[in-house]
Deep mutational scan, measured.
Amino acid sequence: TTYYDVLGVKPNATQEELKKAYRKLALKYHPDKNPNEGEKFKQISQAYEVLSDAKKRELYDKGGE
């Protein structure tokens, strides 16, 4: 599973699309609303952290993490 899959976006997604997808999923899986989905929330946050940063995203796209 790639970070793009976690957020449900395509690899060519814009920053705005990433932000929108992250917010939607973060609300859905937030531990306050969904106590059993803490791990999913962490995955979503990690994916967004990497993909929202241009340098980290470039490194990730080249095969790094």
Results as ranks from 00 to 15, higher is better:
Thr1Gly: 13
Thr1Glu: 11
Thr1Tyr: 14
Thr1Val: 11
Thr1His: 13
Thr2Glu: 07
Tyr3Met: 05
Tyr3Thr: 01
Tyr3Gly: 01
Tyr4Leu: 01
Tyr4Phe: 02
Asp5Ala: 07
Asp5Arg: 06
Val6Asn: 03
Val6Arg: 04
Val6Lys: 04
Val6Thr: 07
Val6Cys: 06
Val6Asp: 05
Val6Gly: 01
Leu7Arg: 00
Gly8Ile: 02
Gly8Val: 02
Gly8Arg: 05
Gly8Pro: 00
Val9Arg: 00
Val9Ala: 03
Val9Tyr: 00
Val9Thr: 04
Val9Phe: 00
Lys10Pro: 12
Lys10Asn: 10
Pro11Val: 09
Pro11Leu: 06
Pro11Thr: 08
Pro11Gln: 09
Asn12Ser: 10
Asn12Thr: 15
Asn12Gln: 09
Asn12Met: 06
Asn12Trp: 13
Ala13Glu: 01
Ala13Ser: 07
Ala13Met: 02
Thr14Glu: 03
Thr14Val: 03
Thr14Leu: 04
Gln15Glu: 10
Gln15Phe: 14
Gln15Val: 13
Gln15Asp: 10
Gln15Cys: 11
Gln15Trp: 10
Glu16Lys: 10
Glu16Gly: 08
Glu17His: 04
Leu18Pro: 00
Lys19Val: 13
Lys19His: 13
Lys19Trp: 15
Lys19Phe: 14
Lys20Gln: 14
Lys20Val: 14
Lys20Arg: 12
Ala21Cys: 04
Ala21Pro: 00
Ala21Ser: 05
Ala21Gly: 02
Tyr22His: 04
Tyr22Leu: 04
Tyr22Gly: 01
Tyr22Met: 05
Tyr22Ile: 02
Arg23Leu: 15
Arg23Ile: 15
Arg23Gln: 15
Arg23Pro: 00
Lys24Glu: 15
Lys24Thr: 10
Lys24Asn: 13
Lys24Leu: 13
Lys24Tyr: 11
Leu25Met: 05
Leu25Gln: 05
Leu25Glu: 03
Leu25His: 03
Ala26His: 09
Leu27Ala: 14
Leu27Asn: 13
Leu27Val: 12
Leu27Pro: 04
Lys28Cys: 08
Lys28Gly: 05
Lys28Gln: 15
Tyr29Glu: 02
Tyr29Trp: 06
Tyr29Ile: 05
His30Gln: 07
His30Ile: 05
Pro31Asp: 07
Pro31Met: 06
Asp32Pro: 14
Asp32Trp: 06
Asn34Leu: 06
Asn34Ser: 09
Pro35Leu: 07
Pro35Trp: 06
Pro35His: 08
Asn36Ala: 13
Glu37Leu: 08
Glu37Gln: 11
Glu37Arg: 05
Glu37Pro: 05
Gly38Ser: 14
Gly38Pro: 11
Gly38Cys: 13
Glu39Asp: 12
Glu39Leu: 09
Lys40Ala: 10
Lys40Tyr: 11
Phe41Ile: 05
Phe41Val: 03
Phe41Gln: 02
Phe41Ser: 03
Phe41Tyr: 09
Phe41Ala: 03
Lys42Glu: 10
Lys42Cys: 12
Lys42Ala: 13
Gln43Tyr: 08
Gln43Ser: 08
Gln43Arg: 08
Gln43Thr: 09
Gln43Cys: 11
Ile44Phe: 03
Ile44Arg: 00
Ile44Gln: 01
Ile44Ala: 04
Ile44Tyr: 03
Ser45His: 14
Ser45Ala: 12
Ser45Gly: 06
Ser45Pro: 00
Ser45Asn: 12
Gln46Cys: 10
Gln46Pro: 01
Gln46Ile: 15
Ala47Glu: 01
Ala47Thr: 01
Tyr48Glu: 01
Tyr48Thr: 01
Tyr48Phe: 11
Tyr48Ser: 01
Tyr48Trp: 10
Glu49His: 09
Val50Asn: 04
Ser52Gln: 07
Ser52Met: 10
Ser52Asp: 02
Ser52Pro: 00
Ser52Gly: 11
Asp53Cys: 06
Asp53Gly: 03
Asp53Val: 04
Ala54Tyr: 09
Ala54Glu: 12
Ala54Cys: 10
Lys55Pro: 05
Lys55His: 11
Lys55Gly: 10
Lys55Glu: 10
Lys55Arg: 12
Lys55Gln: 10
Lys56Phe: 06
Lys56Leu: 14
Lys56Trp: 07
Lys56Thr: 11
Arg57Ser: 03
Arg57Val: 02
Arg57Glu: 02
Glu58Tyr: 09
Glu58Met: 08
Leu59Ser: 11
Leu59Tyr: 09
Leu59Asp: 13
Tyr60Ile: 04
Asp61Ser: 02
Asp61Ile: 02
Asp61Ala: 02
Asp61Trp: 02
Asp61Lys: 02
Asp61Tyr: 02
Asp61Leu: 03
Asp61Cys: 04
Asp61Gln: 03
Asp61Arg: 02
Lys62Arg: 12
Gly63Tyr: 15
Gly63Cys: 14
Gly63Asp: 13
Gly64Ile: 15
Gly64Tyr: 15
Glu65His: 12
Glu65Cys: 14
Glu65Asp: 12
Glu65Tyr: 15
